[in-house]
Amino acid sequence: MQPLNILTIAGTDPSGGAGIQADIKTISALKAYSASIITAIVAQNTCSVQSILPLDSKLVLTQLNSVLNDVEIHSCKIGMVGNSKTIKCISKRLEETKLSCIVLDTVMYTKNGFPLLSKNSIKTLINYLIPISSIITPNLLEASILLNCRIAQCEEDMQIQGRKLLKLGSKAVLLKGGHLNNINCPDWLFTNKIEKRFFSKKIDTLNTHGTGCCLSSALATIKPNYKNWIDAIKKAKNWLQGAILNSKKLSVGKGRGPIHHFYEWW
């Protein structure tokens, strides 16, 4: 069977564990072909982010047109978007393309707290990108920012917030609960028809750099082969769990290391 063409739109990570580099690795590891649009040049490593240079929105749009005018794209993942102008350009172009699957990773902060979006850009993301998304994948902090409320403290809070997030306009919400203080990592899927709990055991490791990027790009890669989000999420989470478990085989950086994207290959 011919591989699917998956598009990722995101910022860079020169250390290779997150951002567009991690997306490309994830898509490739899951046996699809990756096209990529860069929204920002980021100086970061496993320890911290040092600097960010958002690209001009016109250049981002030119990249996007270059790919979409030539390559048949089956699914798209959106990560770091840079600023409001870029968000509007991406939203308009993707809406014109009418892709059947758009996965939006609502990334706003790095794991060490470095801001990736301004307050104004977050409002633009809510108004322009969330409504065209097939699914959004916020963590607990991102959910609280999107809803302007406190961070969920328990799964009951997650359920309440997940339902509110769905009203922002995406067709589905996967609210990630990995930062809850319990032994499991509960995630909740919300659509207009179903609410479904997923969980996996927490792994005692520091190698979690880029897990949000990789989960969302895995979903974008896997979903075109499945009729429903439940099966796609199960497969994506199983792959991610294996990538985290096998991350100990790598030795990358002095901080939070990357997952092992190619653990099934080498």
Results as ranks from 00 to 15, higher is better:
residue 215 L to E: 09
residue 95 E to T: 09
residue 14 P to D: 14
residue 68 L to G: 12
residue 105 D to L: 03
residue 189 L to Y: 03
residue 157 D to A: 07
residue 59 L to S: 12
residue 257 G to A: 09
residue 10 A to L: 14
residue 232 A to Y: 11
residue 46 T to Y: 10
residue 258 P to D: 13
residue 152 A to N: 04
residue 8 T to H: 10
residue 72 E to M: 05
residue 156 E to F: 07
residue 78 I to Y: 13
residue 58 K to C: 09
residue 260 H to V: 00
residue 229 W to A: 10
residue 207 N to V: 03
residue 18 A to T: 03
residue 242 G to S: 04
residue 53 L to N: 13
residue 78 I to V: 12
residue 212 G to R: 00
residue 49 V to L: 05
residue 156 E to N: 15
residue 17 G to V: 03
residue 38 I to M: 08
residue 45 N to M: 07
residue 245 L to Y: 07
residue 175 L to S: 02
residue 242 G to H: 04
residue 173 V to F: 02
residue 111 K to E: 10
residue 43 A to E: 13
residue 195 E to G: 14
residue 35 A to D: 07
residue 154 C to Q: 08
residue 8 T to Y: 03
residue 212 G to S: 03
residue 240 L to D: 02
residue 165 L to R: 01
residue 79 G to M: 11
residue 163 R to F: 05
residue 257 G to T: 01
residue 136 I to H: 00
residue 5 N to I: 02
residue 261 H to D: 10
residue 179 H to C: 10
residue 64 L to D: 02
residue 231 D to V: 00
residue 253 G to I: 11
residue 247 S to G: 06
residue 47 C to M: 12
residue 44 Q to R: 06
residue 131 P to V: 08
residue 243 A to S: 15
residue 214 C to A: 15
residue 177 G to T: 07
residue 104 L to T: 13
residue 231 D to R: 07
residue 264 E to R: 15
residue 73 I to A: 13
residue 161 Q to G: 00
residue 206 L to Y: 10
residue 195 E to A: 14
residue 103 V to R: 08
residue 14 P to K: 07
residue 183 I to Y: 14
residue 223 K to W: 05
residue 4 L to A: 08
residue 206 L to Q: 14
residue 141 L to G: 01
residue 19 G to M: 01
residue 241 Q to R: 09
residue 134 S to D: 09
residue 27 I to W: 09
residue 187 D to E: 12
residue 165 L to N: 03
residue 140 L to A: 00
residue 19 G to H: 01
residue 221 T to C: 06
residue 14 P to W: 07
residue 101 C to Q: 06
residue 176 K to N: 05
residue 159 Q to G: 12
residue 87 I to N: 05
residue 14 P to Q: 11
residue 31 K to H: 15
residue 178 G to H: 06
residue 178 G to P: 14
residue 226 Y to P: 04
residue 29 A to P: 07
residue 165 L to S: 05
residue 99 L to M: 09
residue 225 N to V: 01
residue 139 N to D: 08
residue 147 L to R: 00
residue 177 G to W: 08
residue 265 W to Y: 13
residue 20 I to R: 05
residue 21 Q to M: 12
residue 3 P to G: 04
residue 259 I to P: 05
residue 29 A to T: 02
residue 260 H to N: 15
residue 248 K to R: 14
residue 103 V to D: 13
residue 162 G to P: 03
residue 20 I to G: 06
residue 185 C to K: 04
residue 222 I to N: 12
residue 94 L to V: 08
residue 123 K to I: 00
residue 243 A to H: 02
residue 226 Y to L: 11
residue 73 I to G: 15
residue 120 N to A: 09
residue 205 T to F: 11
residue 97 T to M: 12
residue 57 S to N: 08
residue 21 Q to L: 14
residue 130 I to P: 01
residue 130 I to C: 00
residue 205 T to P: 11
residue 239 W to K: 01
residue 110 T to H: 02
residue 98 K to E: 15
